[in-house]
Design a protein around this nucleic acid. Sequence first.
DNA 1: TGAATATATGAGCAGATGTTCATATATTCA
DNA 2: TGAATATATGAACATCTGCTCATATATTCA
Lengths: 123, 123
Amino acid sequence: MNHTSQEELLNGLSRVSAEMPADETLYELADLFRVFGDTTRIKILCALSVSDLCVADIAALLSMNQSAISHQLRVLKQARLVRVARRGRSSIYGLDDDHVRTIFEQGFRHVRHIAPGEEKTHA
Amino acid sequence: MNHTSQEELLNGLSRVSAEMPADETLYELADLFRVFGDTTRIKILCALSVSDLCVADIAALLSMNQSAISHQLRVLKQARLVRVARRGRSSIYGLDDDHVRTIFEQGFRHVRHIAPGEEKTHA
DNA sequence: TGAATATATGAGCAGATGTTCATATATTCA
DNA sequence: TGAATATATGAACATCTGCTCATATATTCA
């Protein structure tokens, strides 16, 4: 490895380094995706994309402990992925905004090997 | 809770249940997002979105152990998020397809509170 | 108010995950 | 071929995560 190529390397890395978003942004990004990275939470989000639901309904739907669902809903709420509205003694949860659907959609496309721009196929 | 509302509830849950994708799809989806859910991997993907890089360069860029980077690249490769091309004794890694950029983009939008359709603002 | 119902929360535990260290496996070049 | 270089991989360890159990906190209604 001669001097010139090492200089080029350093310049190249500096350029990459300069184009990287701030570390804090990258942490936030990883935090967001980490929330999507669990089957239980994915199922909850998927269910809520069909209909708003109370905690007990979600638990019944996933055949899971009420406590487990409640804990996960808290994680989802902290990530601003779901919102909650109290109605009587129930808490009705729903998706917080459309980012969730869009992020989902891209995930599906990757899993199903569909190019980002390409037409959506069903099932 | 009377009989009618309980019946409605069951019907509602059945409907939600029917609209949910297959469990296996949801597992794959969670697996995909789990890969995005780590700061080191996010940084690697971010760097590769700027330029293809060899292992040593990525390690230098992130001030991290070569072994740690190599382990993470394997995870990224298994998820089909990066591809590798051997050039001499180096392995040059790059993003595998455009899903990565698109998923990133949506993540950024969420973190920065930009609506999915809305115009992109810089930095 | 008090019983019943719905949800939230804290502690504890088992399993998963990311890093490091040591070392194995290419690949180049003298 | 053998030394040097670049990457890959296995084992070990500390940390993180998600679930369960027990229990606390609303909220409704008789």
